[in-house]
Each structure stands twice: as structure tokens, then as C-alpha cells.
């Protein structure tokens, strides 16, 4: 009985969270659309601070993870491809894998861990300190002040981070193939041949979309923070989990849609 109650409660909480997020989403969309009309109302400095933290402060870890990712991918696949004597195809595999799929996905997961949680914690702390209430009673919508700059910052940070993950991954792959005596020229030639402009831009557009998701989910988690002792911690956790889940789900949807459209 207790089990059913807690399952039911979990679902209710999830639905309520979804409902709240939809309300915030509507407000965010309205504020975004109103932006070109009144650009002076945009909180530029908050955007720059969030952007700097999300993008530039995240470069080292993204570069490192991308490098390892390329290294591991190349190493594992080269072993298999070598049995057919076509280990130079590792370059194709890496290019497609990184640019289409893994680059944006892995970067989004890193962003969820670094920035999604940070957004939730920042906004959550503000809620606990009654700063959100203060904004409301001053007649200033928290969405315009807090959600919009952070979501946009994450959206713009993602393509930059993704490029670094992808390039570092290719370098990692190059090192592995070097060790397998495949000439660098062949490797880079294959990479350039495989990765066309469309694939790269598609990946980066996807990355920007993931960034928007992660940023928005993080901000929503922060806005829903409960004013209990563990409230901010719970909000940060649900920002990371929610961010990763929403990215994974939408990546799946995008993959299926692309498949049917033959992209």
C-alpha cells in the first residue's frame, strides 16, 4: 500500500513539476518574443556572467572529456576494424559519431552537470532568501530576470563547447591511429571527406537546442525549490537529472524524425 502511495505521489510531483515548467515556458517564450521590441529590458550583464561561466569556464573539462572520448572510441573501434584491415575507417566513424551524435550529447551532459545544477542552485538560493518574492513584489517577472539570461547563455555556450569536444575528440583519435601507423594525412583526409558542412551545422544546431533544454530545465528546477533545509540540493539534483533525461529523450526523437525524413 505504502509503495503505491509513494509511486502515486512521485507521479503527481512529476506532473506538477511539468505543469509548473509549462507555465514558466509560456512566460519565457513571451518574454523572448518581446525582446526585439524592448531590447533595453534584457539583463545583458546577467547573460554575460552566465555565459562566461557556462562557456569559457567549461572549456577545459569539455576539451579533456572530448579528447578522452575520441581516444577511447578510436581505440575500441580500431581493434574491431583492424580484423578487416580497414582501420583507416576509424576516421569516418569518429567524424560521424562526434559531429552527429556524441559531440552534442556528451557536451549537453557535461553542461547539465556544470551549469544546469549551478542555475538551479543560484535561483534556488535566491528563492530561499526571498529574493524571488522581492522581484515579484517589485513587479519584476523572475522569468525575465533569471530564466531568460541563463537559458540564452546555455543556448549560446553549447555550440562553442561542442566544437571543442569534437575537435579534441578528433585529436584523440589521431593519436591512436598514429600509434597504429596510419599516416596523419590519410586520417585527416578521411575526416574532412566524411564530415560535410550540413552534418556539422546540424550537430551544432542540435547542440544549441540541447543547451536551451538544459538551461531551461535547470532554471525551472531552481524556481520550484522548496524552502526546506535540503531544498537547494534537491533542486540541483533534479536539474541535472531532468536536463539529461530531456536531452536524451529529445535526441531520440530527433534521430527518429531525421531517419524518416532521410536526413
Amino acid at each position: 500500500m505504502k509503495l503505491f502511495t509513494s509511486i502515486g505521489r512521485g507521479w503527481m510531483d512529476g506532473l506538477l513539476a511539468f505543469h509548473d515548467s509549462l507555465a514558466v515556458l509560456g512566460e519565457t517564450v513571451c518574454e523572448t518574443l518581446a525582446l526585439p521590441l524592448r531590447p533595453g529590458r534584457f539583463r545583458g550583464r546577467d547573460f554575460l556572467v552566465a555565459f562566461q561561466r557556462a562557456a569559457f569556464d567549461g572549456l577545459p573539462i569539455c576539451t579533456g572529456i572530448g579528447f578522452l572520448l575520441g581516444l577511447i572510441l578510436a581505440f575500441e573501434s580500431a581493434a574491431a576494424l583492424r580484423t578487416f584491415g580497414v582501420e583507416s575507417y576509424v576516421a569516418d566513424l569518429l567524424a560521424i559519431g562526434l559531429f552527429r551524435e556524441l559531440g552534442p550529447l556528451v557536451t549537453a551532459i557535461v553542461l547539465a552537470g556544470r551549469s544546469g545544477s549551478a542555475f538551479a542552485a543560484e535561483i534556488g538560493t535566491m528563492k530561499v532568501d526571498e529574493e524571488l518574492d522581492a522581484l515579484s513584489t517589485m513587479g519584476l517577472p523572475p522569468v525575465r530576470f533569471l530564466v531568460l539570461p541563463r537559458t540564452l547563455a546555455a543556448t549560446f555556450a553549447m555550440p562553442i563547447l561542442t566544437i571543442f569536444v569534437e575537435l579534441a575528440g578528433l585529436v584523440g583519435g589521431a593519436i591512436v591511429l598514429k600509434m597504429m601507423d596510419i599516416p596523419g594525412a590519410v586520417y585527416w583526409g578521411n575526416v574532412v571527406r566524411t564530415a560535410d558542412t550540413f552534418m556539422i551545422t546540424f550537430g551544432l544546431a542540435k547542440a544549441a537546442f540541447f543547451g536551451m533544454l538544459v538551461g531551461f530545465v535547470g532554471c525551472c528546477a531552481g524556481m520550484r525549490t522548496r524552502t526546506t533545509a535540503d531544498g537547494v540540493g534537491v533542486a540541483a539534483t533534479s536539474a541535472v537529472v531532468g536536463g539529461i533525461v530531456s536531452v536524451a529523450v529529445s535526441d531520440g526523437v530527433i534521430a527518429v524524425v531525421c531517419h524518416f525524413w532521410g536526413v
Binding site: 546577467d46 556572467v49 535566491m126 532568501d129 526571498e130 529574493e131 518574492d133 522581492a134 513584489t137 517589485m138 513587479g139
Partner: peptide, 17 residues
């Protein structure tokens, strides 16, 4: 109405940034 009232919260609720 928001413009006709002023509120000081218990902790001050100043914006930390």
C-alpha cells in the same frame, strides 16, 4: 499595485549579484 507598495523581507532579500 506593486508600484504603490514597498516591501522589506526578513532577510533583506538584496540581490547578491
Amino acid at each position: 499595485l506593486c508600484r504603490r507598495i514597498g516591501v522589506m523581507y526578513q532577510s533583506g532579500a538584496l540581490f547578491g549579484s
